[in-house]
């Protein structure tokens, strides 16, 4: 828990910096485990109930570990009008999981976001740091096969 204490100290334990503190902790641990949250509540003098309320209020906080590859589909209006729901469906079908969930092999987490602000590229899928624009069903298949291939290559 030293990391947690360090991060809290970085913000001087300031109550109003709670969200930034949680963001930094999540960046460190990849998600927000229960023990970590309990520690934060204790160190910052917050009721655990209130902390849970805050953490579950914001979408960017994850209470479950994330898969290795994060695939985000933009569901903004411009992307919607250009066919994003079908791209999402194809991903759900191919990954056999639903939006917000992680595949059982912990390889992929599929999420949606309500507009990344890159509407000229719509429909967009973000894989890690890379933006992939003008997605179609065919391109989804190509993208997943690329990732799977690189995984196979890495494990060999």
């Amino acid at each position: 828990m030293e990391k947690v204490d360090e991060i809290i100290a970085r913000y001087n334990g300031d109550r109003s910096a709670l969200i930034s503190i949680l963001q930094d902790i999540q960046a460190e641990y990849n998600w927000l485990p229960r023990e970590v949250l309990t520690e934060v509540a204790k160190k910052m003098g917050l009721s655990l109930t209130e902390l849970c309320g805050t953490v579950t209020f914001y979408r960017s906080f994850r209470l479950k570990p994330r898969g290795k590859h994060l695939i985000t589909v933009c569901m903004g209006t411009a992307c919607h009008v250009r066919g994003a729901p079908r791209v999402l469906e194809e991903l759900e079908k191919k990954l056999k999981t639903s939006a917000g969930a992680t595949t059982p092999d912990r390889l992929f987490t599929l999420e949606t976001v309500r507009c990344l602000g890159a509407c000229a590229l719509g429909p967009i899928v973000v894989l890690g740091d890379e933006y992939h624009g003008q997605m179609t069903k065919a391109k989804v298949d190509a993208l997943l096969s690329e990732v799977r291939q690189s995984e196979r290559g890495a494990s060999q």
Partner: peptide, 10 residues
């Protein structure tokens, strides 16, 4: 800027 489709602030 939460409106989907708006990104001028960005």
């Amino acid at each position: 800027e939460g409106d989907p489709g708006a990104y001028m602030d960005r």
